[in-house]
Simulated scan of single mutants.
Amino acid sequence: MTGAAELSKHAQAAPVGWFGFATAHRASIASLVVLIFPLLLPFTALAVNILIYGLYALGFNLVFGYLGLLSFGHAALFGAGAYICGIAIVHFALPWYAAIALGILGGLLMALLIGALAIRTRGIYFAMVTMALSQCVYYLFYQAVNWTGGENGLRGVNVRTIDLFGLQLDFINPLTRYYVIAGFVIAAFFVLSRILASPFGAVIEAVRENESRARASGYDVTLTRLLTFVLSGGFCGLAGALQALHLSIVPIEIMHYETSGLVVMIALLGGMGTFFGPMVGAAVFLVLENLVSLRTVHWQLIVGVIFIVCVLFFPAGIWGTLIARGKR
């Protein structure tokens, strides 16, 4: 049997039992959770933030969890989607759907640019190169005051109504806003699930597990890394575009290295290399941030201690550890 046939068979074969059912229908199950999510939280704005940052972490996890590359430059992909979506609305008065499409394209192109320069490096060198390139992008957007607003951010990204097949939706309404954004997140679930279940998804994991063997099987490891990084940029660009519509402003801090560090923490907290882990990590982190910050201004210290405890007792992340125990 050829290497391609083996990988294809591996990608299509699902585990047996309840875990196999959950794996085969992971996008559908995740979508159902997203639909009922506003009922579980105290206010809708928090649920929207969890969706957006969960989607951002979902894109990052494609590189970090499934490919095995640690990137500290994903803020550039997230920010590029947000800024290009905002510029399309503010400076060119484009409709919301065209702005979102351009935001996704911006994330893809930014990932292609950064990936082409960084993808041949390994380990900590890849992390440092991506962070350096991301900071260069941050500086360029910071200096382009006429387009991005500089340190004041890009203001006026106002979308009040969503025209959907002749139906006017009030985007100002928090619940309507949530479900509009949830529609894009659910679509991203199914796209990502299809990628991971395809032969290409098996190749991604093969490169992570044994790069030399994947190369010996005839696969272009460098091209696989680059394509995966670009696909990750598409998901992050979509998250950035949705963030711009949600906030009606694009702050320059969205491209800062702290935004790259945040997504690493979310992925580790939820469970890298798991489908729903990024959403769990985003939910846990943002809920903790909101609850603890109401009690004390030193919330970062307390959340940091909780994060350390989670890492000690859930080494594969919260969701990753639960899955591992469920398999046993």
Rank of each mutant, 00 (worst) to 15 (best):
A187N: 03
V203R: 12
A202I: 03
T176N: 15
P174A: 09
A206G: 14
Y219K: 00
Y219E: 00
N152R: 03
F184L: 00
V180C: 10
A197E: 13
G153M: 11
R208H: 13
F165V: 10
N210H: 07
I172G: 07
L192N: 09
L169D: 10
Y179P: 04
E209P: 09
R194H: 09
S198N: 09
S193M: 07
V159H: 04
A216K: 07
F190Y: 11
T176P: 11
G153D: 06
R160Y: 12
G218R: 11
R177P: 10
L169Q: 13
V159T: 06
G166A: 06
I195N: 06
T176G: 12
E209Q: 15
S217M: 14
R215V: 08
V203F: 10
L175F: 08
E205T: 15
G156T: 05
L167C: 00
V191Y: 01
N152P: 00
F165R: 00
A197R: 14
F190K: 00
L223F: 02
L167G: 01
V180P: 09
N158F: 00
S198W: 07
N173T: 11
R225D: 03
V207G: 07
F184E: 02
R160E: 15
T161W: 15
T161R: 14
P174D: 11
R194M: 04
E205D: 14
T176H: 14
L154E: 01
L196E: 06
V207Q: 07
R213K: 08
N210Y: 01
V207R: 01
G201L: 05
E151F: 02
I181E: 04
E205L: 10
I186S: 04
N173H: 10
T222Y: 07
I162A: 12
F189S: 05
R225A: 14
L169Y: 11
D163I: 00
F189I: 06
A216E: 06
L175I: 08
Y219P: 00
Y179I: 05
R160V: 00
D220H: 13
D220Q: 06
N152A: 09
F171Q: 01
D170T: 10
Y179G: 00
A206L: 14
R213F: 07
A188M: 04
S193E: 08
R160G: 11
V159M: 11
R155N: 13
S193G: 14
R160P: 03
T224I: 15
L154V: 01
S198M: 07
L164P: 04
A202Q: 03
D163N: 08
V159Q: 12
A182E: 05
D170R: 13
V180F: 15
E151V: 05
V221N: 10
R225M: 10
S198D: 05
A188S: 05
D170Q: 14
S217R: 13
R155I: 14
G153S: 10
Y179T: 00
L169C: 08
I186Y: 08
E211F: 01
F190A: 08
R155T: 14
N152V: 00
S217D: 02
G153F: 06
V159F: 02
Y178R: 13
F184A: 11
R215C: 15
L175N: 04
D170A: 13
N152H: 10
L196R: 09
T161G: 09
S198H: 14
